[in-house]
Design a binder for these strands. Structure first.
Length: 621
RNA sequence: GGGGGCGUGGUGUAGCCUGGCUCAACACACCUGCCUGUCACGCAGGAGAUCGCGGGUUCAAAUCCCGUCGCUCCCGCCA
């Protein structure tokens, strides 16, 4: 019953309760910590603690004032416990509790007691007990929050972002941050144990155009010149290999000034790794072990290794994408040979011009209406298909506009090729082989959603043997698919000048549930090979010298064969947290228009700062 | 750069197509009073939105039209 020295309870009447928190502060209704110290966290107490004197602190989740009895659910990051204040037994504490509101920060001294029989709450881990308050101190009053601090609420994301510090109070958001931390810690521990050292690389670096747009940082000391923020530490980690570091890693922020998506932020975090004296298999094996270790440490789940591997060509043909979701089947199947010679003109024309006919078998979708099929066709068309040919399968046979043109033998062959059963829906696309697969790949994802085929669990896969080069969309010149330091596959080297598009790279992407987690490659480590590739890319020697001179110089002094990988850490946390947006696993993310609704960034700066940076703002065009 | 969705008290929504019967309804939250076993506390009462913003059409606009801003999903873009 002894209140600690300095403890004061408000004696103010009802009128004071209507005051603002600021007014309460002024009126001395809130207290300092004094000599009170927390003895337990709020999720920790159990029946075995009954009788213990405890001091708890936290936020008021809710207050239930029954008149003769006040209950307070006290929340901290560990959990929730019920505090009881009895006006009869402890009038001072009850008076203090009367003034308390949602999200007030309070401290409670009291005794752990078993709840009376019949009043236990099985939904709370602490539901067998409660804390009988002897004294209660308001540490900080709070305005009514703009949205309830509970999980499962549906609140506009803009409001959540403006009050991110409140949003992060929600247990699920805290869990995301914990998961993120645990994964990062597990990755660090794993790599350290494998002989990797974490080395920091500069954030103010030289622009090396190509790739994404850079964020610019003006130089005060060098008028008219700029640093840029790194899109990745790519060149530095290669230089660390030249430096003999052999095994480098870094969990590092990267910056790209491109348009945003649910899985793309202007600043994001990579797990960046580089190793010397290895081939692709070693990098892949290490990455697998690292990911499996991190998932085991952070979530306690076993991830079997090795992960399956698909070549880029296979992935594109069978899934129509270079980041296939392998949680379900429904692969794209080529059936050009089966429909060749049928009377269906759309197919005949496509095949005659070197195209292909490919399709999907949507299980159980044979009953789809005309309208539903039209929606699917819209998806396919948006993905580049010329059209979509449905074949509805039922016990009697096939329905659909193409059925009679195809004829019974071709239809029977199709059913067998797709492994189709009555009640299924075949969806066929004619066109250039790759385009047909890509359109069907989009359709595959849409259908999987509609049909509920996406199972739970984690489907990791590697996609390997990417092409080294691709034609740039604008001018048709060659550009690097991965980056210009990626080594070609040795057996394809003879093709480099003659048939560059057929050259495959020693590159690999890691995909999880259809999300590209990241990728890497074995790098070119000899200057001659690098020059040869620059020549193929049409990068003149003087341009190469200007942009990458330091790297080329470094390669003259003995560069080890090396390779590595960069994994998008935010995406990894996102998928493992079961989220659809990386904003859910970033403490303070930006909106799709790259603004920070809480701080107001980006914002104008002081004219003097501009002047010092030698920047003049052009009148808006 | 382009396409789609959303924007109504603090929060989430209804109303919008088919303008007037709505100076806007419901739930939660909030405020006041009552209440000794609540945990979605209950009961009674109350306050709170000129419907993102601007313009237009109309006798009349949350509702129709144009523009604009914000959030979001996607295409382009992201070596």
């Amino acid at each position: 019953m002894s209140a600690a020295p300095g403890f004061c309870t408000p004696d103010d009447g009802p009128a004071a309760r209507a005051q603002t928190p600021a007014a309460r502060e002024g009126a001395g209704m809130t207290g300092e910590l004094g000599d009170w110290r927390r003895t337990h966290t709020n999720g920790a107490l159990r029946l075995s603690d009954v009788g213990r004197e405890v001091t708890l602190m936290g936020w008021v989740q809710s207050r239930r004032d029954l008149g003769g009895l006040i209950f307070i659910d006290l929340r901290d990051r560990d959990g929730i416990v019920q505090v009881v204040c009895s006006p009869q037994e402890v009038p001072a504490a009850a008076r203090a509790a009367e003034a308390v509101r949602s999200e007030y920060v309070i401290a409670v001294q009291g005794v752990v007691a078993a709840r009376p029989a019949g009043t236990e709450n099985p939904r709370l881990p602490t539901g067998q007990i409660e804390v009988r308050a002897r004294a209660l101190r308001v540490l900080a009053a709070a305005e009514t929050p703009p949205f309830p601090i509970v999980d499962g609420g549906d609140v506009d994301e803009a409001v959540r972002l403006r009050y991110r510090y409140l949003d992060l109070r929600r247990p699920s958001m805290y869990r995301h941050l914990v998961l993120r931390h645990r994964l990062a810690a597990a990755i660090r521990n794993f790599l350290a144990a494998e002989g990797f050292i974490e080395v920091e690389t500069p954030m103010l670096i030289k622009s090396t155009p190509e790739g994404a747009r850079d964020f610019l940082v003006p130089s005060r000391l060098h008028p008219g010149k700029f640093y840029v923020l790194p899109q990745s530490p790519q060149l530095f980690k290669q230089l660390l290999m030249v430096a003999g570091i052999e095994r480098y890693f870094q969990i590092v922020r990267c910056f790209r000034d491109e348009d945003l998506r649910a899985d793309r932020q202007p600043e994001f975090t990579q797990v960046d790794i580089e190793m010397s004296f290895v081939g692709a298999d070693e990098v892949i094996a290490l990455s697998e072990r690292m990911v499996a270790h991190a998932v085991r440490e952070a979530l306690g789940h076993h991830v079997p290794t090795p992960f399956p591997r698909l070549t880029y060509a296979e992935a594109m043909d069978r899934y129509g994408t270079d980041k296939p979701d392998l949680r379900f089947g429904m692969e794209v199947v080529d059936c050009s040979d089966l429909v060749r010679g049928t009377e269906f003109r759309v197919f005949a024309q496509a095949l005659a011009s070197g195209g292909a006919v490919r399709g999907l078998c949507a299980p159980g979708a044979g009953g789809y209406s005309r309208r539903e099929v039209a929606e699917l066709e819209a998806v396919a068309r948006a993905a580049g298909a010329g059209g979509l040919v449905p074949v509805h399968l039922d016990l009697e046979g096939s329905r659909g506009p193409a059925s009679r043109f195809l004829g019974p033998p071709a239809l029977a062959a199709l059913r067998e090729r797709f492994g189709a059963r009555p009640g299924d829906l075949l969806l066929l696309v004619a066109g250039a082989p790759r385009e047909a697969s890509v359109a069907l790949g989009r359709l595959r994802l849409e259908l999987a959603r509609r049909l509920g085929l996406v199972g739970s669990g984690w489907a990791f896969t590697w996609v390997v043997e990417f092409p080294l080069l691709e034609p740039a969309p604008e001018d048709g010149r060659l550009s690097a698919v991965h980056h210009p330091f990626t080594a070609p596959m040795e057996e394809d080297l003879p093709l480099l000048e003659a048939e560059p598009l057929r050259v495959r790279a020693q590159a690999y992407d890691l995909v999880l549930n259809g999300v590209e987690l990241g990728g890497g490659s074995i790098r070119i480590h000899r200057r001659e090979m690098q020059s040869r590739l620059f020549a193929v890319l049409g990068i003149a020697p003087d341009v190469a010298r200007d942009r990458f001179g330091f790297l080329l110089d470094a390669f003259q002094y003995g560069a080890p064969p090396h390779g590595g990988i960069a994994l998008g850490f935010d995406r990894m946390v996102m998928v493992l947290a079961g989220q659809e947006s990386i904003r859910e696993v970033i403490a303070f993310p930006k909106t799709q228009s790259a603004t920070d609704l809480m701080t107001g960034a980006p914002s104008p700066v002081d004219p003097r700062a501009l002047e010092e940076a030698h920047i003049q703002i052009r009148r808006s065009s």
